[in-house]
């Protein structure tokens, strides 16, 4: 059943891509290239399975997320609890499935926040130039110099630990790279004739940016977004591991691993910390494969 739905997901994506980008050949070329990339395709399939599991967690998880079984505390994997139970007698497998919701949504939403800030800042800096450009680039310099985890922890302790604040913190700190990319691309693009034409037609600055410039730099933005999701998932796991991200009882893969900070768990109860670690690893690996495939597929220099 999983497999069937899985295929549907992939097919839907194909259809969507085709209708959305009808007639735009570079995207079709890119997509056909992506289809030939085995690693990227594997990444896409694995990701679809993980997303499917996260969405249908309520129906698939064998036990409740916070269901406590005091007769089975810290038990090893068995037929009743496929991946054993944790120190409160909760089913590890079910918590892993629910934890996927957290990790994936943090990755997606944090990256969207970074995307909005980064594209806006980069576009304004690149298009306006002069003093505005200077001011924005100094802000980028400042944020880039922040020791990431220290600042993230300070902000997290001001706002309080919650999944929304984690998304905000990661988004607010990881837009700088994108801003630089967008600015650089726009700096070269805005000298081109078609922008001059748009200007002489009397279009406003924001119209030129959104309708003429941004569509032309969609490729690097898309690649950045894909790889950004992988980065955000890793950061969320790190923050939650340190106790400043998603807090118990809500499970996240990162805060599940922090059980291994106890030496007993680390040495004797592998089922409590190795599976969430492997899941983060598999998720991030799949996204990285997909992102790298996209980069190659969208690279105009590699045209055949």
């Amino acid at each position: 059943m999983i497999n069937k739905d899985e295929n549907k997901l992939v097919n839907n994506k194909n259809v969507e891509n085709k209708t959305m980008l009808k007639g735009i050949s570079p995207w079709k070329i890119a997509f056909s290239r992506l289809k030939k990339n085995k690693l990227a395709l594997t990444g896409l399939v694995v990701l679809s399975i993980l997303i499917f599991l996260a969405i249908t967690a309520d129906f698939i998880a064998p036990h409740g997320r916070d269901h406590i079984d005091l007769f089975n505390v810290n038990t090893a994997p068995s037929s009743e609890y496929l991946l054993g139970t944790d120190e409160l007698g909760r089913d590890v497998l079910s918590r892993l499935i629910f934890g996927g919701q957290v990790s994936l949504s943090v990755g997606l939403i944090a990256t969207s926040i970074a995307l909005v800030i980064g594209v806006m800042m980069g576009a304004i800096a690149g298009y306006t130039g002069g003093l505005v450009d200077n001011a924005i680039m100094r802000i980028v310099d400042i944020v880039m110099c922040f020791p990431f985890f220290v600042i993230a922890i300070v902000i997290a302790s001001i706002l309080g630990p919650s999944i929304w604040n984690v998304m905000f913190v990661i988004g607010a700190l990881s837009w700088t790279g994108l801003a630089r990319i967008v600015r650089a691309e726009i700096l070269t693009l805005k000298e081109k004739e078609f922008i001059e034409a748009a200007k002489s037609l009397g279009l406003e600055g924001h119209e030129i940016i959104t309708k003429h410039l941004l569509p032309n730099i969609l490729a690097p933005i898309l690649v950045f977004a894909t790889l950004g999701i992988a980065g955000a998932i890793l950061v969320e796991a790190g923050l939650s591991f340190l106790g400043f991200g998603v807090r118990q009882p809500q499970p996240s893969w990162g805060n599940m691993i922090s059980a291994a900070q106890s030496m007993t768990v680390l040495r004797l109860r592998w089922w409590q910390w190795i599976p969430p670690g492997l899941l983060i690893f598999i998720t991030v690996l799949s996204i990285n494969f997909l992102g790298d495939g996209l980069r190659d597929a969208l690279d105009p220099r590699l045209k055949q």
């Binding site: 796991a237 691993i257 910390w273 670690g277 983060i280 991030v284 494969f289």
Partner: peptide, 13 residues
């Protein structure tokens, strides 16, 4: 790719 994708603290543990 594996090196870039494995969480640092998980690898350490």
């Amino acid at each position: 790719f594996i090196g870039l994708s494995i969480p640092v603290f998980f690898f350490g543990l």
